[in-house]
Design a binder for these strands. Structure first.
Lengths: 335, 335
DNA sequence: TTGAAAGCGCTAACAT
DNA sequence: ATGTTAGCGCTTTCAA
C-alpha cells in the first residue's frame, strides 16, 4: 500500500492536519517543516488526488474533448488552450470521442462524474440542438469550439469559431482585385457548419461584386484530396471560369494535381485558392494561396472563457468569431 | 450540491449499500430496481468517480503521455492504443508534456498521484537513463513507445519501437537492386534514437553490399523541410551520387524541392527516398518512395502490454521492434 | 436480498 | 503553530 499523510505524520512525529497544511502551502514551524520534508522523502510519499478531489469537490483539470484525437487539424487549437490553462494552474487532459463513451454525448459524463472541472468541446460538425440543450442545463461549464451557428445561438452557451464567411469573402475580393470575374467553387459536406458559412461567403460576395453566379460552377465534395481531384475533373468539363476556390486546402491540392494531370498550368491557365493554410499548402507546386485559420487564437479564447466561467466571472459575449487571414502565395495570377 | 447515493437511497426508500450494489451490477429485487431507476432519473444522479477511485484505489484510466500533443506524428499510435484499451474497458486520457508538469519527469506524478492506473509514454527522443531507472522503481506500470535502444535495455521495462535499422536497410537494398551504387544520406538530430539506428542501417548495408561509403555524402540536418532543402544544396555541391536517402519524409520533400529549384529532375537526374510515409508523401511531385512506419501496430502492442501488466500477466519480451514497410512510388528510377 | 457500519486519504473547522 | 474531529461519496465486509 502507498504511504498516506498518516504515515508521514507518524514518521515526522506530528499530526496529519499539519502534514496537510504543509502540503497546501500553509506556514509550519521551521523544524516541523524539516521533519516533514525528511519523512516525505523517506516514505516516497505522493498525495492521492482522488481523496483530495473528493473533499474539495474539484479537480483543477480541464477536459478537452475532440471528435478524433488523431485529426491533425486540432493541433493549433490545443496549443492555444494549453497556453492559457497552464498559466491559470489547470491541468489539461485530452479525450477523444473515438474512445468508448456511452452514447453520443457520453463525454459529458466526464464533467457529471467530476473527472474534470470544465470541458472544451472541439468539433467542426454542426452542434446538434439536443447537445446544446443538454449543455445548457449542466452545472458544469462547457465551451464549444468549431461548429458555431450565428443564427441558432442558444442562450448562455459560449462558443468560438473562425469567421468562415469573412474568410471566403476575402478570397473572392482578392480574386476580383486581380481581375477574375468567373470563379468556381468546390464545397464541403453539409454536416459541417463551415460548409454553410464558407459557401455563403462565396455566394454573397459574388452578388456584392456583381459577378456571375453559375450554379454549375459549384461542385460538392468531401474535404479530401481525392474529392478535390474529382471535383476539378467535373469542373473542367463545364469550363468558363478563370479561378477555383476550394473550401479547404486538401481539396485545393487535389484540384491542383488534377489540373496539372489534364494539362492545365496553375496559375497560368487557372488560379486556385484553398482554405485553412495547412502546412503542406506551402510545399505543393505552386505554393497555394489560401486563408489561414486562427487556430491558436481560437484555443486561447475558448480556454480564457472557460477559466472565467470556472472562477465565476461573467462572460460578455456568447460567440466569438475570429477573423482568418489571407495568405497570398503563387497559385493565383492576374488576368 | 450534486445528488449522492444517499439521496438516491432516500428517494428510493432503501439503503445506500443497495444503491451501490445496483450501480455495480449486483442483483437487487425487481421492485427495488424499479424504484432505484426512478430515483436516479428524478434526481439526475451521476456517480462521483473520485469517491469510487478513492475506495477502490484504481481509476480504470490509462494515461497516454506525449512530448507534444500537437505533433501529428503520434496520430497512428494513438489510434492503435485506443483500439485495444476500448476493448478492455479502460478509458484513455491524453496528456502533453508541454503542459505544466513540474520537472522533467513530472508526468510520472499522474501515476503516483493515482490519476491513472498505468502510463504509455510516447517519445522519439532517446529515453534518458535516469527516467528508465525511475520507471523501473515504480509500482505503476509504464510502457515506452519510441526512443528504444536495443543495446541499453533496462531490466523489466517494456518498450516498443519501429525497426529503424531494418527500414533503411530495405531502402538501400532497393536502391541497389535498381542499380544505384552511390547513395547519399541526410541524417537527423542526434538526440533522437531513430537517427542513430537509421544511419546505422545505411552505413552497415552499404558495407554489406560493398558500396562506396563517402563521409561527405552524409549531411546532418534537423527533420524539417527547410533543413532537407539546405542539406540537399550542400550535397549538390559535393556531387557524385545518384540517389539520396533522407531519414524522414519532410527532409526528403525539402530535398526534392531544392533539386527542382536547382534544375535537377527527380527521379531522372536523381533518385530520392524518405522515411515515415506521412500523408503528404504521396501528394508531392513526384510521389515519394518511402518507408511506412507501422504506427497503428506500435500503439496496439504498447496498449496490449500495458493491459497485461495491469491485469498481472507476465510479459515475455522487453522490447518489441516492428518492421516498417517499403512503399515504392515514383521518386526513384533505375540507372 | 438488504441494512448498518467501517473506512478509503484527504481537508477544514474548531479548539488549544 | 498544531492537534482533534467530522465528513467528502463511495465500496465492502458483516449480520440479519
Amino acid at each position: 500500500m502507498n504511504p498516506t499523510i498518516n504515515d508521514v505524520a507518524r514518521v515526522a512525529k506530528t499530526s496529519k492536519s499539519t502534514v496537510s497544511r504543509y502540503l497546501n502551502g500553509y506556514n509550519v514551524k521551521r523544524e516541523t517543516e524539516e521533519a516533514l520534508k525528511r519523512a516525505i522523502k523517506e516514505l516516497n510519499y505522493h498525495p492521492n488526488v482522488n481523496a483530495r478531489r473528493l473533499v474539495k469537490n474539484n479537480t483543477q483539470v480541464i477536459g478537452v474533448v475532440v471528435d478524433d484525437i488523431t485529426n491533425i487539424f486540432y493541433a493549433g487549437i490545443l496549443r492555444g488552450i494549453e497556453q492559457v490553462t497552464n498559466k491559470c494552474g489547470y491541468q489539461c487532459a485530452y479525450y477523444s470521442r473515438t474512445s468508448n463513451y456511452q452514447g453520443e454525448f457520453g463525454f459529458l459524463d466526464l464533467a457529471l462524474e467530476r473527472q474534470v472541472d470544465g470541458l472544451i468541446f472541439i468539433s467542426f460538425l454542426k452542434f446538434p440542438q439536443d447537445l446544446l440543450e443538454r449543455i445548457q442545463k449542466l452545472a458544469i461549464p462547457v465551451i464549444l469550439v468549431g461548429g458555431a451557428d450565428k443564427s441558432g445561438q442558444v442562450e448562455n452557451i459560449f462558443s468560438v469559431d473562425v469567421d468562415n464567411e469573412k474568410g471566403v469573402k476575402e478570397i473572392v475580393q482578392y480574386l476580383h482585385r486581380i481581375g477574375h470575374e468567373k470563379i468556381a467553387y468546390i464545397t464541403g459536406p453539409e454536416e459541417f457548419s463551415a460548409t454553410y458559412w464558407r459557401r455563403k461567403g462565396y455566394v454573397e460576395t459574388l452578388k456584392e461584386l456583381e459577378l456571375e453566379c453559375n450554379p454549375s460552377w459549384i461542385i460538392p465534395s468531401d474535404w479530401s484530396e481525392e474529392g478535390g481531384h474529382q471535383a476539378m475533373r467535373e469542373l473542367l468539363k463545364v469550363k468558363g471560369f478563370t479561378a477555383v476556390i476550394a473550401s479547404n486546402d486538401e481539396m485545393a491540392i487535389g484540384a491542383l494535381l488534377c489540373a496539372h494531370e489534364l494539362g492545365y498550368l496553375v496559375p497560368k491557365d487557372l488560379s486556385i485558392v484553398g482554405f485553412d493554410d495547412i502546412e503542406v499548402a506551402k510545399w505543393v507546386y505552386p505554393p497555394l494561396t489560401t486563408v489561414k485559420q486562427p487556430l491558436f487564437q481560437m484555443g486561447e479564447e475558448a480556454a480564457k472563457a472557460l477559466v472565467k466561467k470556472l472562477t465565476g466571472e461573467e462572460l460578455l459575449e456568447q460567440l466569438v468569431l475570429i477573423e482568418p487571414k489571407l495568405v497570398i502565395r503563387h497559385s493565383c495570377i492576374k488576368v
